[in-house]
Design a protein around this nucleic acid. Structure first.
Lengths: 228, 228
DNA sequence: GTCTATATCCCGATAGAC
DNA sequence: GTCTATCGGGATATAGAC
């Protein structure tokens, strides 16, 4: 720890990492929208221009926070995704974990989905997001057998799809279900962070339970999701 | 129209309404996050302080935009909510209309759910939101019969609930389904605006169809949503 | 009561010294 | 890699013309 004094010049041990930590801290206190590089610099006792040695601009810092966020998110989902339960139960558990992550790491979740980051300008976000989509898809594939149109890659596979645009590629019933499940989990998380489920820990439990139940319902009637 | 010249002093016909229009315009061009009162003033040819005669601050203007947004939103949902179709088909049509509203009036949808407005500071938002929840709940009630714990008010009823906190009040199976449906529609809308369904009009159609299908699936397996 | 003019503060970003 | 200095822009608030 290279002194936090304000007077003379000094080296900071690892300003880049410190900025990411401080960003999460500040976002937790004031929300992404009110996060400013200047305040982060102030809190770390460095000049307002110092961050620009490590990040091109504010969004570049937030993108780095987002990458860390995705990593933690996957780490929270994977145990459920890879448990020995039946695929349906695993997916329900993943939905609940999805909600719990949003609540327990709200600052990170905000950066992931509410910071207005330009995915085109920050391709690393897509890369970091992919394991999450893969986890859902792998469970769904375990549930339904192979996906129909295209086989599922293993996580980390090349995944070059020729079909429709967007991260989800072409299709098949497995993908249809995976998309519905992820969209539904996201909707419940958004409602929770909105306050639509009320405040406090009880709201988190309610939201997680609702998301898990909706997941089970979608699975049970999945034949309705892929019409043609 | 009281001249748009810049030189002399003049009365603006209805600065308040003009600001709301211009806000929608600007948000469409640059997103809510980058909307500023100053730019709206510039575009209208008035001083930057002029808006403060009509709105206490930026969020107060956005709240007014949001109220208009809710009104248009309800107008888009009601025809489907009140059609002669069976309740299940009405709910599926509402989900599709939900998505289409988000796409066709993206600036308004952004203000509604992505502007970070403080619902506590702007109670009129809850009021304006309620008819949407009511429309979903009314259809669900038509589907399932009465809700179980509490009877459904007509739209505009007092709706004083004693149960858990949050806008949704106590519960009953009808409310459980209504919440699941609205959360799912919202999740699909968020994905669409994210770009997760790809760009262009085809993505809108895909998203709307997916939301409608997920709605049908949740309805079919609604027995899984209210466990106890 | 509506608008102009102005002043202050904070933030983002850049240039150049060390 | 960090600092000092600086610029432009936006938000807030106030004083005063009409």
């Amino acid at each position: 720890m290279p002194r936090a004094g304000k007077g003379g010049r000094y080296h900071h041990g690892d300003l880049r990492a410190a900025l990411i930590d401080t960003a999460v801290e500040l976002i937790g206190e004031r929300g992404v929208r009110n996060f400013s590089l200047a305040e982060a610099s102030r809190r770390l006792g460095v000049a307002v221009s110092a961050p620009y040695a490590h990040f091109t601009d504010r969004d570049d810092l937030l993108a780095a926070v987002a990458v860390r966020g995705y990593q933690l998110f996957v780490a929270q989902l994977l145990p459920d995704a890879e448990s020995d339960l039946l695929p349906g139960a695993r997916l329900a558990a993943m939905a609940a974990a999805y909600i719990r992550f949003a609540a327990a790491h709200r600052p990170l979740f905000e950066v992931l989905y509410d910071a207005g980051l330009d995915r085109a300008r920050h391709p690393e976000l897509e890369v970091a997001q992919k394991p999450i989509d893969d986890a859902f898809l792998a469970c769904v594939t375990a549930l339904t057998g192979t996906g129909g149109v295209s086989r599922a890659d293993g996580p980390g596979g090349a995944g070059a799809e020729g079909g429709a645009s967007g991260p989800w590629g072409a299709g098949g019933p497995a993908r249809d279900l995976a998309i519905a499940l992820e969209a539904t989990a996201r909707g419940h998380a958004v409602f929770l962070l909105d306050g639509s489920f009320g405040p406090g820990a009880a709201a988190v439990d309610r939201a997680a339970q609702r998301a898990a139940q909706a997941t089970r319902a979608l699975i049970e009637s999945r034949h309705l999701l892929s019409p043609a």
